[in-house]
Amino acid sequence: MSETYTLSFNIKAMDFSAAGEASSTIKKVLMHLGMPPSVIKRAAVCSYESEMNIVIHSYGGTLTLSIDSSQVIINAIDIGPGIPDIEKAMEAGYSTAPEEIKEMGFGGGMGLPNIRDNADILEITSSSAGTNVKIVINIGG
């Protein structure tokens, strides 16, 4: 694959019935393209955690999958309100999610740590105007 393949999804805040659909499609696309199973798994986990973060913690955003010959890139971009303390948010178990989210099985403070553990490169920038999470997974390992 010489050119970049790109696919974008709009993710609505607090829409729990649709949450996960974008990541399900991303996983299917990666499988269809014949990506190695470990790349598919890592990308799917990163995508799903990012998608849930947009649903739970933001006012909405987009999830974009880009693939070229050497990398799978997932960009999760939302429109705020931002992560007040990124360092804290990267700590396993630290959560700002409300109780009703925890009852759904999320908000356990493992989202960003899970993404970090599965990504080859993770870049996070955040302000009150929004958060931009860039996840890179190398196809070669």
Binding site: A19, G20, S23, S24, V45, Y48, M52, M104, G105
Partner: peptide, 12 residues
């Protein structure tokens, strides 16, 4: 909830 099924799908 439906996220259990999505988690199962993503996690094999």
């Amino acid at each position: 909830n439906i996220q259990v099924i999505r988690t199962a799908e993503i996690s094999d």
